Computed example of a mutant assay.
Amino acid sequence: MGTGPARRWIVGWTGASGAIYGVTLVRELLAAGVHVHLVVSDAGWRVLKEELGWDATKRWDSLRSGLGLEADDSRLTYHPQGDIGASIASGSFLCDGMAVVPCSMGTLSSIAHGASNNLMMRAADVTMKEGRPLLLVPRETPLSAIHLENMLKLARLGVRIIPAMPAFYYGPQTLEDAVRFMVGKVMDGMGVPHRLYRRWGHSNDEG
């Protein structure tokens, strides 16, 4: 795909802790002119409620409010997880790739084993089979051997594994700083320009 407003990315939110990572990523992608196709697992909605206070019973209203969208905003397309016939379930749907942020170990395992039991898993499966970038941000600790084996399997298939491990060299002062660092690392993997954190060897003005 090209650059600018024509870019399209699929983003998945799962039930792993760290909902703020996914929310911040989508906000930044929309601000960068990327059209986002969003799918949220049922467990993901529960975490949004527990961690951010979103109303999981009014899903579109919660998305619009939480992401700062107007009622007629066309920058975001929301797909219910059960809609296995959605556009993003097909390889003929053109997009730049997919990111699952945060990614639960259950979702990661399903992707590693080719399960396509719902739209999240199917979209990830399609992303891999079409040779498009797939980025996963697992948020779990400690990690079992099964977790590590699944991540290694996916990494060997070309999947980008970006664990939620904020750095401290740039002197973060707030939780928001740490979140912006992680989201910036994901956007680096997407090839989407940003100024979310200070890079090593750069001044604050350089981004």
Rank of each mutant, 00 (worst) to 15 (best):
residue 128 M to P: 04
residue 166 P to C: 02
residue 165 M to F: 08
residue 25 L to F: 08
residue 143 L to C: 10
residue 199 R to I: 13
residue 93 F to W: 08
residue 109 S to N: 12
residue 117 N to E: 14
residue 140 E to T: 12
residue 43 A to F: 00
residue 59 R to Y: 01
residue 205 D to N: 05
residue 206 E to L: 02
residue 58 K to P: 00
residue 54 W to Y: 15
residue 187 M to F: 06
residue 50 E to A: 11
residue 62 S to Y: 07
residue 57 T to Y: 07
residue 196 L to F: 02
residue 192 V to C: 08
residue 22 G to T: 05
residue 68 G to R: 10
residue 196 L to E: 05
residue 147 H to P: 11
residue 174 T to F: 07
residue 21 Y to W: 08
residue 62 S to H: 08
residue 6 A to V: 14
residue 123 A to N: 04
residue 130 E to N: 06
residue 70 E to V: 01
residue 202 H to D: 11
residue 100 V to L: 15
residue 26 V to D: 08
residue 34 V to L: 06
residue 202 H to P: 03
residue 8 R to W: 02
residue 191 G to N: 11
residue 84 I to G: 00
residue 201 G to R: 07
residue 188 D to Q: 07
residue 123 A to S: 15
residue 91 G to L: 09
residue 146 I to A: 05
residue 7 R to K: 14
residue 205 D to M: 04
residue 164 A to T: 04
residue 68 G to E: 09
residue 4 G to N: 11
residue 32 A to F: 05
residue 8 R to T: 11
residue 119 L to G: 04
residue 188 D to W: 12
residue 39 V to E: 00
residue 74 S to I: 04
residue 80 P to G: 06
residue 111 I to R: 10
residue 84 I to R: 13
residue 196 L to S: 10
residue 178 A to T: 15
residue 44 G to P: 07
residue 91 G to Q: 09
residue 42 D to L: 07
residue 12 G to P: 14
residue 157 L to H: 11
residue 182 M to A: 07
residue 126 V to F: 07
residue 177 D to L: 12
residue 151 M to K: 04
residue 106 G to C: 02
residue 155 A to V: 03
residue 86 A to C: 13
residue 84 I to F: 14
residue 45 W to L: 03
residue 188 D to K: 01
residue 1 M to D: 08
residue 76 L to R: 10
residue 87 S to E: 15
residue 180 R to G: 02
residue 25 L to D: 05
residue 130 E to K: 13
residue 109 S to P: 09
residue 21 Y to R: 06
residue 117 N to V: 05
residue 21 Y to H: 15
residue 50 E to Y: 14
residue 71 A to T: 08
residue 116 S to P: 06
residue 175 L to F: 07
residue 186 V to L: 15
residue 205 D to R: 11
residue 13 W to I: 09
residue 166 P to R: 10
residue 104 S to A: 06
residue 127 T to D: 11
residue 136 L to Y: 04
residue 195 R to E: 14
residue 167 A to K: 12
residue 67 L to D: 06
residue 57 T to R: 15
residue 13 W to F: 03
residue 48 L to Q: 07
residue 107 T to E: 00
residue 20 I to C: 10
residue 53 G to E: 10
residue 76 L to F: 07
residue 103 C to A: 15
residue 182 M to R: 03
residue 112 A to W: 13
residue 180 R to P: 03
residue 124 A to K: 05
residue 161 I to S: 08
residue 15 G to D: 00
residue 137 V to S: 08
residue 7 R to V: 13
residue 21 Y to T: 07
residue 43 A to T: 06
residue 198 R to D: 05
residue 71 A to D: 15
residue 9 W to T: 07
residue 14 T to C: 03
residue 152 L to C: 09
residue 202 H to A: 12
residue 161 I to L: 13
residue 21 Y to D: 01
residue 142 P to G: 09
residue 93 F to C: 09
residue 37 H to M: 05
residue 74 S to Q: 14
residue 1 M to G: 12
residue 1 M to K: 03
residue 144 S to Y: 04
residue 128 M to W: 02
residue 128 M to K: 14
residue 165 M to H: 07
residue 157 L to N: 12
